[in-house]
Design a binder for these strands. Structure first.
Lengths: 311, 311
DNA sequence: CGATAACGGAAACAAATGTTTCATTTTTTA
DNA sequence: TAAAAAATGAAACATTTGTTTCCGTTATCG
């Protein structure tokens, strides 16, 4: 209930039976959904050239309790999260809370647990959506340009951020040979950063709480006049100040662990973009890498199903 | 004047010189631009956890006359360029392909690139949605039960799957001391698996293409009669055959790298569930871990901005 | 340390918003 | 045509909103 699509359909369904003034209001809303989401009711009435009371009456004729509820549906359309996902999640949630859901294998998912999973899923969708905003797209492209022009690329992520850094390093190495993953194995931080310079790029992943050693290493990179590309959770995170590009990802989560899902996704997207921009050359290099892996017998080969010689 | 980008940059520029509460407000606005556009000032203040007066003060420090003017800039941003929302994205996509979109900092996102990002985002949403199906929820609960009853937990993920495994290991260790991350550093696979037995659980992440060494290690665990929990991409993947629980995640992607986003998300969800089920005990152990980390001075502490004693 | 300036939050305030009421006009129907 | 019903807009209402004021608290410096 309250989903944008539903509200819109109600307006259309009732439209024929409406009085002229109601039609005028309804029509304006159908034609200017953004206005509904952003303006006040009175301002909307003014734009639609009807008195405020008409809008209240319109709400009643389509069976909505108040304008606030109506507007909420329109706002969700503009918001982070696709209303369709949110709406469905809520439904499930309530269904779950009421009783219990019995699942396939006899395992029972309690209402509480189901609600928690819904909330996780909800937040993850939001994290993704927020992390691919228009600003982020521009930033991603800018990041690509820097990486393409780099002599060496250093990737850095500590503690919880390590998976995102590793992810990028792993995929990047399939087509590029100028990457260093700064993991500091056996205390080799200094060694891994040695020789860093003006033409190098450091790609640092650092979400709150910010790890001190990441900050230190970024400072070092900065001192070497390297370019900093920063995956973080805010434009004003301590690390973001001096970066050339900030990739701001969202890490909301119902627990107190932050979620690195969006960070991982964005790192993957970065690789995908790099390959797409790299064109044929990148593809050939990947082919070489794959061939090499098959020489090492890295991956499992499906030998095909054994013939079914049934008795 | 009053353009979104300008407002945002003012917030960032002044951020360093702001008082703690102002920073909190500014940061929330930077991190949640949609809220600025859609909520009332008081509602925004509530979300940002500051009193309303702080927001007025923030307006003054960045040289804006009133909140209304400020919000208008944010609303305009939603008007002409909204939403990661699938339906809307398509429209933009086609508009984008036709010409080019100019973004904030002068970076230009080509139509092709924008379309590719849209596709990535689309697929990632789908990956998440599919990976939290009802069946998966039951499987997640079953996995929790096994892990809770385990003597030791071994986590395994090779190559691209390593981030997901590491992610789980990192978070789990904050409250559990019976986990081994099987990373085989310096060829120590055998050593890490030694002593595995009937009461142990192996949590293996293995998506196509399936790495042979993962399969081998799962075979070994199976021979030791350990319980297998398997994060994979299909109910009939080679590894799924003998597992007690299969967590089937979706890994669709527009490039030929598979996406590990959903796998990472599910691993995080698993931890969240374990903590939720663990109740007070788990929380206390996490508190201990946090205290220990602060002893090591692991995380950056906001020393607070220097007070503004400007001449 | 004490003095001083910056900070922060509660309360007060006027302006606006969403809603209701009511009298007037218009349309329908007998 | 007259009566009843529906539609309409102005005004009144309580609530919420943006903003200001005030005063206790906290940090900084001489």
């Amino acid at each position: 209930m309250g989903a944008y699509t539903d509200l819109r359909e109600r307006l259309i369904a009732e439209y024929g039976a409406m009085s002229p003034q109601l039609q005028r209001a309804a029509r304006y809303m159908l034609d200017h959904p953004d206005d509904v989401a952003l303006k006040s009711m009175r301002a909307l009435a003014l734009s639609a050239d009807v008195p405020p009371s008409t809008i209240v009456r319109l709400m009643k004729t389509i069976g909505i309790d108040g304008y606030q509820e109506f507007r909420l549906g329109y706002q969700n359309r503009l918001r982070d999260m696709p209303a369709s996902y949110a709406g469905r999640a809520r439904q499930l949630q309530h269904r779950g809370v009421a009783g219990e859901m019995t699942m396939n294998h006899g395992d029972v998912v309690s209402g509480d647990e189901n609600a928690l999973i819904d909330e996780i899923l909800d937040q993850e969708h939001g994290n993704l959506a927020r992390s691919y905003s228009p600003e982020m797209r521009a930033a991603l492209i800018a990041a690509c340009a820097h990486i393409e022009g780099a002599r060496r690329v250093f990737v850095l992520g500590r503690r919880g951020a390590f998976p995102a850094a590793f992810q990028f390093a792993y995929a990047y190495r399939l087509f590029g040979d100028n990457l260093t993953l700064v993991d500091g194995a056996a205390g080799t931080f200094g060694d891994q950063l040695r020789g860093m310079g003006r033409r190098d790029v450091m790609l640092a992943v650092c979400l709150s709480p910010y790890t001190n050693d990441t900050l230190q290493m970024v400072d070092y990179a900065l001192a070497q006049k390297s370019t900093i590309i920063n995956v973080t959770d805010s434009d004003v995170s301590p690390i973001a100040r001096h970066a050339s590009v900030n990739l701001v990802v969202s890490d909301a989560s119902p627990s107190f662990f932050q979620s690195f899902t969006a960070a991982v996704s964005v790192m993957q997207a970065l690789v995908t973009l790099l390959v797409a921009r790299g064109g044929e050359t990148a593809l050939q290099q990947i082919a070489v890498a794959e061939k090499q892996l098959s020489v090492f017998d890295t991956y499992w080969q499906d030998s095909g199903p054994k013939r079914n010689n049934r008795s």
